[in-house]
Design a protein around this nucleic acid. Structure first.
Lengths: 341, 341
DNA sequence: CTGAAAGCGCTTACAG
DNA sequence: CTGAAAGCGCTTACAG
């Protein structure tokens, strides 16, 4: 049986109240009593029963995190940033994976709300179009922060990168090294970041007086290695002059490069490529991938920090005005866009 | 304010007791009352207060997971297997990262015990030599299952692969394709799987009447890409005839291959390589890496299953005899050991 | 079939 | 400086 306040009180012949106050350093307890209580507590290896504390204080120092996919370099970096920062502030993190499914995401939010976590961090599933489950969180006054894959219309704090700008920088880089016919492998239609990267690509073409041709835009349904291969095959059968591709995510880019290698098409001489995310893998393949570095760890850290502030504020019944933090990205130039291989 | 049993009771003019029993389908409540209570509960959107339930039932349906590193293909697969299986059984998972540090691991175990999780899953940090923190878990009668990086001497259930056998198969494969001077890049000295893989390598050499030369064994301190490059450099400066290397983990192998590529040394013609883990990356580099496939997802799944059984048993005060589950691995032959490139 | 009562282990407003 | 008491929201043994 675990030791309780009662055990300490009985041992010292004082009240439970005094024991509790002594342990929490209330000013109205004598030094002597405090010393005695603390000694006894550590002697008996007393640990407060968190279940009771939770019930009394109505908080569990636990937050929930829902992520589309854990086995994913970017997201696991974000997780790392989150639990790192959370631990510093004394919070634990329950992690759930939506598998890009709206239904699962919804169920998991219910789970976390039933669990009465102190706050929720979420990166949306690609499938999620309806936001009632997210508003449900806000209705219950549970602090919510969205990151990376967000819903613009939900009124909560967000941590994102400037996808449109990053995509513009990537596309401009292809133009700068001389590409004239630039294709784009985009993500699914719904996620905001997939849309923004596409818009950044399109705008940059037009800003440079290059023609935008919608048939040069290919969709990677599940953002996989295979998608990269099939998109390349499709593209090559439909277009002859493509000399550069801006690809929504590194994994697809790696698949694309593999297929180009197979076909003996030279990267970057025949077709230059820029990816997105800066997975570790990208620096290890041949040729090494030029890509946009996305600060996963920092995104996790900032997301928790925002959530933490909201938790504090909501405890004081003093809710914060939602805020959007935009993190910097940078272009990492490697072999798939440099001719000095 | 969240709805409580009391709210429902007052609305229906019955007792809290009856409401509670009706919701849990106790047989001694009339059908009519049950219907009424359930209707009202769903009308008011009643959710049991988990804090109160935890305090009463002394369980939280939450387990803790400590892992050395999250941003790691193998471990993130294990996490995936664990939370997947846990969710099916109605358990949530709190994840912590030890960063391969013994001190952190110890602190995190304290955290989880203070939190009174229903059970703990752990894969040990490389640094951990002392096991008192693990025995502390057992002393408090909290179910514990170790996986992958285990301590043989701790008396709990375990889920592992047969590292020695897998290493033997990898080494034998190098011998079978004709290698005569086989080096080994091993992991740090402490972890059991690093020891076992080394032993499998050594034994296989001897079984094949090849000489075991300890100077052909190099240590990768932090199992990094860089370790692979520096080990290769060191090895090439010390030995001339090496024609095969069995490398403890894929990331190091990828670094090794990169360095060999840089130096114009042909893989597998000059030096053949077998890795360990089957990271996604391994099938994407050039040449593609022959490796041992380690079933991460399944290891997570089995670990949770074992823990779940122990939780059930310990609730009935009927503790299980610790059990070790050994999962199968297989050799994936790719280009770094095949001459048909 | 229904309900009063005890109790899980804390915290804290209040009295002395 | 100390402590009795109420209460957080449930569950369940027991009485009727």
């Amino acid at each position: 049986m675990p030791v309780t306040l009662k055990d300490i009180a009985e041992k010292l012949n004082i009240s439970i109240t005094t024991v509790s106050k002594a342990l929490k350093d209330y000013p109205d307890v004598s030094k002597k009593t405090k010393r005695l209580v603390k000694e006894t507590a550590s002697l008996l290896n007393y640990k407060p029963n968190s279940f009771a504390v939770n019930l009394r204080t109505k908080e569990s120092k636990t937050i929930g995190l829902i992520i589309p996919e854990i086995v994913h370099h970017f997201f696991s970096s974000v997780i790392n940033g989150i639990i790192n920062q959370a631990e510093k502030k004394g919070y634990l993190v329950i992690i759930l994976q939506s598998n890009e499914s709206y239904e699962l995401e919804k169920k998991q939010i219910d789970l976390l709300l039933a669990k009465r976590v102190d706050g929720i961090l979420i990166s949306l599933a690609n499938e999620s179009t309806d936001y009632s489950h997210l508003n449900e969180i806000l209705n219950q006054n549970v602090p919510l922060v969205m990151f990376d894959k967000i819903a613009k219309l939900v009124n909560c704090s967000k941590v994102i990168i400037n996808d449109r700008q990053a995509a513009a920088i990537a596309t401009q880089h292809l133009i700068d090294i001389g590409c004239k016919h630039i294709a784009h492998f985009r993500g699914p239609l719904l996620p905001q970041n997939s849309i923004d990267r596409f818009l950044g690509y399109k705008k940059t073409l037009l800003d440079n007086n290059l023609k935008y041709d919608s048939s040069l835009v290919y969709i990677s349904d599940d953002m996989s290695f295979e998608n990269g291969k099939t998109n390349i095959s499709k593209m090559l059968s439909e277009h002859e002059h493509v000399d550069g591709i801006f690809i929504n995510t590194d994994l697809v880019a790696v698949g694309a490069i593999a297929e180009l290698n197979n076909r003996g098409i030279k990267v970057p001489e025949d077709i230059a490529i820029v990816g997105f995310s800066n997975w570790f893998m990208s620096s290890v393949i041949s040729p090494k991938l030029t890509t946009i570095n996305q600060p996963g760890f920092d995104m996790g850290k900032q997301s928790f920090k925002l959530l933490y502030k909201e938790i504090k504020a909501s405890k004081k019944n003093n809710p914060l005005v939602p805020k959007t933090v935009v993190l910097d990205t940078d272009l990492i130039i490697r072999e798939t866009t440099s001719s000095t291989r």
